[in-house]
Amino acid sequence: MKKKIVALMLSVALAMSFTACGNSDTSKADTKKEETSKDGGTLKAEKNILSVEITLPASLVEDDSATLTDEAKSAGVKEVTKNDDGSITMKMTKSAHKKLLNSIKESVDQSNDEMLSDKENYPSFDSITYNDDLTEFTVNVDSSLYGGMQGFAALAFYMEGNIYQALNAVPEDQLKTVVNFVNKDSGEVIESGDSSSMANSQSDSETIAQ
C-alpha cells in the first residue's frame, strides 16, 4: 500500500513538473550546442537539448510501472523505457529534471503535513524534517505518546527518500534513507532505522510467498 501511495505521489509530481515546464525548454533548443555537465551527472546533449537520463529500479516501481510510464509520457517526458529487469528509464531535459525534483519535495511536504494533522494515527508526531538530498528524515515526537504502530510510518519515508535519490541519479545499490524518531524535548533518539530494513522485509515476504 505504501508503494502505491508513493507511486501516486510520483505520478502527480511528474504531471506537475513537466506540464509546468511546457515549451520553455524547447524555445531555447535552437540556441544550444553540445554541453558538458559541470556536476558530473548523467547528462547528454541530443538534438541540441541538454538531457538527463534516469532509471527507477524495479524495487521501487514494481506493479506500478504501467501507471508511471503512462503518466510520464502524458506529462511530456521525451522517452520512457520499461527495461527487461522491470526498471523504468526516463529521458528528459535538465530543466524538467530540476522541476521534477522540486515537485517531489513539494509532494513530500504535503504528505508530511497530512501525517502531522492525523492525530488519530500519529498522536505523538510534533514535526518532520529532512535533509536536502532526502537521505535522512527526523520525526520529533512526544515521547509519552509515541509507540504502537507509529514507527511503521518510517516505511513511507523510506520510499519517498529512495525514490527521490533514484530520480537524482543515485545508483540502486547506494540508495539509503535513514529515519530517526527523536524526543522533541530532550533531543534523544528513541528509535532509528534505514531503508535496508524495508528491502529485507520485502525479501522475507517473497521467500514466504514461494
Rank of each mutant, 00 (worst) to 15 (best):
N183Q: 06
S203L: 10
M9S: 12
A29N: 04
D84S: 15
P57Q: 02
E53R: 15
S117H: 12
S117K: 13
S17A: 15
F181T: 02
K44T: 12
T138D: 15
L14N: 04
N168Y: 01
M1E: 09
M159Q: 08
I49L: 14
N102H: 10
Y164R: 03
D194Q: 01
Y146R: 07
S51D: 06
E188N: 12
Q210M: 08
T89M: 12
T67R: 11
E62F: 03
M1T: 08
S51N: 09
G41T: 15
Q202V: 11
D132K: 06
L155Q: 01
G76R: 01
L60R: 05
L56I: 03
E34T: 09
N140W: 04
L60A: 05
S117I: 07
E106A: 02
I208K: 15
M115H: 09
A72T: 09
E160C: 01
L8Q: 13
N200Q: 13
K99G: 15
T135I: 07
L175A: 00
S37M: 00
F157G: 00
D25N: 04
D194Y: 06
G161K: 10
T177S: 10
E71F: 07
F137T: 02
A20V: 13
N83S: 10
T69K: 02
P57R: 07
T69E: 00
F18I: 00
K94E: 15
L101H: 13
P57D: 04
